[in-house]
Design a protein around this nucleic acid. Structure first.
Ligand SMILES: [Mn+2]
Ligand SMILES: [Mn+2]
Ligand SMILES: [Mn+2]
Ligand SMILES: [Mn+2]
Lengths: 242, 242
DNA sequence: CGTTATATTTAGGCTAACCTAATATATAAA
DNA sequence: TTTATATATTAGGTTAGCCTAAATATAACG
């Protein structure tokens, strides 16, 4: 049933392109369209369409065009989701320009795992669109992570998940305060105006509202499986020396 | 001089492997070692060593082994840095297990840009080791973090970034003086002893040395190129629809 | 309907990065 | 030093994914 083929980057790329041309109106994608979209020659497209058809990922009628099958659509959607989330990440978090972020996203999308991308999505607050405005498909695996901006939470304990800001200095500042992912902080007072006072292990810090906005936190974690595993890491593995 | 070749993932991979076998002791890497490390056959290694040698990235003596040149080492270091930072990211932030994170990092490292990885490093608080414990090489591009304690700066204009103190009252005091994050102040005199005199928009304030210590400031920001560009982004580009 | 223009496929090549098998060199043992 | 073993290189082959040019199918037009 569910193909456990390992698809090549190129095969995924073609599926993604078909998905894109079909987006919304569900018409067939023509050879030329795809060639233009992918920056390859028509002949290369034909070749790949035959292969994808044999794998049951598209319905292909020679001289007529191609259309994703259920199976193909599932894969394409996943890839597109990764692409768009990665763009969000690269643009919003890393401050990469849109052209570069597209290029990088379109490579990383083929190697990043489903699990990693779901976490990333949570980190970003489950955005619904990519920087260009296109919709980001939902994940099929349910993964509730409760992430919000530090500037919006009420009193209590929170774990820092991520620093989001395109401004390097903001990040530097947060780092120099030790406010890095993994740290648990207590939010002390939250008057709707003025600085936010938070307490770390040994210090109190007042943060400007704007800065607090760039800190993504989740409620002090109950012991989750993922976290427990993470804490337990450490023992340098001889097998994967980095 | 500085090779503006675009290297393939594979070429980078070999450089990285040579780097790894050389790490610490600077001996040559043998064909067999590399083959084992990369999971390919000896013959494939020989082939690639010749190519890398021609590109001036390694010193290769047939039957003897290979060693990175200055140029090759620079590239290998960059790749390794990316690898290890990505592992940190995938393990710490995404909760991926070490084996998987190694595999993913080893692919992403070849496509993620220098700029993106530097931002990521900052996000993670500039970690010095990968999850396995190996050192993460420094970035060659300087990334200014310019935060210091008010008690230590010389005359000039500064912006208050944070109030840090173990004492809740200190923070309250500073807040009541209007010394909150975001405010720009001029430091007037800095005798090495005694109170510090600072000037805000409309007042002069004398601060005790100890209090000044809990104020983190950065130099009044000039408009940097990076910052300007970043602020300007935004307009969704029709060219790269995600 | 025939003719022309456009879109698509087929045929035949190329390159990077692998591989196996055969050969050559270097090192260790006798 | 000669021989045996381990290591490295060369020669020749395969595959995926691209290409160009030629052949063919479809669509558009008078
Ligand atoms: Mn892609
Ligand atoms: Mn893509
Ligand atoms: Mn790699
Ligand atoms: Mn690697």
């Amino acid at each position: 049933m569910s193909q456990k083929y390992e698809l090549s980057s190129s095969e995924e790329e073609y599926l993604e392109a078909i998905y894109t041309t079909q987006e919304g109106k569900a018409r067939v994608a023509t050879t030329r369209e795809l060639a233009a979209c992918l920056g390859v020659r028509d002949a290369s497209v034909t070749e790949m369409l035959k292969k994808l058809s044999e794998k049951g990922l598209i319905n292909y009628t020679p001289y007529r065009g191609a259309m994703l099958t259920e199976a193909g659509c599932k894969i394409a959607t996943k890839v597109k989701r990764k692409h768009r989330l990665l763009e969000r990440f690269l643009v919003d978090i890393c401050g990469i320009d849109t052209h570069e972020s597209h290029k990088q996203a379109c490579e990383i999308e083929h190697v990043i795992s489903d699990k990693a991308i779901d976490t990333l999505s949570a980190q970003l607050g489950h955005p619904s669109t990519c920087p260009g405005g296109s919709a980001i498909p939902e994940s099929d695996s349910e993964d509730e992570t409760d992430v919000s901006r530090l500037s919006e939470v009420k009193e209590g304990s929170y774990t820092i998940r991520f620093l989001t800001s395109a401004e390097p200095e903001t990040i530097s500042r947060l780092c120099s305060l030790g406010l890095i992912p993994g740290l648990t902080v207590r939010v002390q007072r939250t008057s709707s105006k003025g600085p936010l006072v938070i307490e770390t292990k040994d210090t109190q810090i007042a943060l400007g509202r704007d800065v607090a906005e760039s800190l993504l936190v989740s409620p002090e974690a109950m012991e989750t499986e993922g976290r427990r595993r993470r804490r337990r890491r450490g023992a340098p593995s001889a097998a994967t020396p980095g």
